[in-house]
């Protein structure tokens, strides 16, 4: 089991600390988002080369719409530019890209089109699946799944965890094994609530724009050490994270 679990199958990152990174340098908050792009590309490459097959990134939550309109606007442009810039590389590296959420009409149409194009372009890739949670809310996904379940008119006593999960968006996504939340914040923030049920959480102090492949590998090492210790005392891999750190 230790060998099988050596590399987490599904890693999720909550990309926190862009604003603080900018504030420390007396830059506008948007400069932090701009600097985040390099970290994103570094982590995607690190995850792919270490054998992680599912990577999820929390880019924008449903709550983020409350931020100043100018910042949201700049963020949308940045995402669009990043998609256009990196699409060929992602495709060449066999990364399948998917966007989770993306339902708000406030998302600019050109961005929606580019996102759709990126998903079309990469949909047959199998080396790694990158899920970008954009305009995402974990509770909303669960509510949507409930609605879809009710519409399917399944009798109440036949609803199981597995059959419920089939109604979640991208139901082929496996449970998250490891969540990395940068900048030392220790909250879930409504992120993929259903999928993180059994995840290990790691909270590095580094701010997201400074997060690099080395940090990512350190996190994978930390994950491996935790898992090995569980193995030593003979517990199953799906226990929740109350084990010794």
């Amino acid at each position: 089991m230790g060998v099988v679990m050596a590399v987490p199958r599904h890693v999720a990152c909550v990309m926190d600390g862009n604003g603080r990174w900018a504030a420390l340098r007396s830059l506008p908050r948007t400069a932090g988002h701009e600097a985040a792009e390099a970290a994103v590309m570094d982590v995607i490459e690190a995850a792919r080369s270490s054998g992680v097959t599912w990577l999820s990134l929390y880019a924008f939550s449903t709550e983020n719409w409350r931020r100043p309109a100018v910042e949201v606007d700049v963020l949308m442009r940045l995402v669009r530019r990043a998609i256009r810039k990196h699409a060929p590389v992602l495709h060449a590296r066999g990364v399948r890209c998917r966007f989770l959420g993306m339902s708000d009409p406030r998302i600019p149409a050109p961005l929606v089109r580019d996102v759709a194009d990126l998903m079309t372009l990469t949909r047959d890739n199998r080396r790694m699946t990158l899920t970008v949670a954009f305009d995402h809310g974990g509770r909303r996904d669960i509510v949507e799944a409930a609605r879809s379940l009710i519409r399917s008119a399944l009798p109440a006593d036949q609803v199981t965890e597995a059959s419920f999960a089939e109604h979640l968006p991208y139901s082929d996504t496996p449970d998250v094994d490891l969540v990395i939340r940068t900048s030392g914040e220790q909250r879930i923030s409504n992120f993929m609530l259903w999928q993180v049920a059994y995840a290990e959480w790691i909270f590095p102090q580094v701010l997201w724009p400074d997060f690099r492949a080395t940090h990512f590998r350190e996190c994978l090492d930390a994950y491996r050490r935790r898992r090995r210790r569980f193995g030593d005392v003979g517990r199953t891999a799906t226990t929740t994270g109350e084990g010794p750190r």
Binding site: R81, I83, R84, A87, P110, D117, L118, T120
Partner: peptide, 14 residues
Amino acid sequence: AGKAAALVRLLTPA
């Protein structure tokens, strides 16, 4: 063809 077109659109300057 859909994939090729998506790539072309992504590569054309916005």
